[in-house]
């Protein structure tokens, strides 16, 4: 229970940090920012990797969770990068 309270503390602080983190975002970056933070929510992959796999059902669930979270992570970062590359051309 003590661990849970400590983690709850982290949760609350992270939420406040997240609320302050972005404020004035130019509209051109709305989509890349959404896509980039979507890739971060693929952190569920870490959760999928610590699942127990004692029964067959659990193994299947863990595998599927790892698979889908990985798609989220890889796809998310690559799409974001591709979008941002388009913008960076303007520097030329």
């Amino acid at each position: 229970m003590e661990t849970l309270l400590l983690l709850g503390f982290i949760l609350v602080l992270s939420i406040f940090l997240g609320l302050e983190l972005i404020s004035k975002v130019p509209s051109t970056l709305h989509t890349p920012l959404m896509s980039g933070s979507n890739a971060i929510s693929g952190i569920a992959l870490v959760g999928a990797l610590v699942l127990s796999a004692d029964t067959q059902l659990q193994t299947i669930l863990a595998f599927a969770a790892i698979l889908f979270a990985s798609i989220n992570v890889f796809g998310g970062y690559l799409v974001t990068n591709r979008m941002l590359k388009m913008f960076s051309k303007k520097d030329k």
Partner: peptide, 18 residues
């Protein structure tokens, strides 16, 4: 798992602002 909590709530909160 703390990294899940931090990353998840960052996305949750900043996503809401966005």
């Amino acid at each position: 798992n703390n990294v899940l909590i931090v990353a998840g709530s960052l996305v949750g909160a900043s996503g809401l602002i966005l």
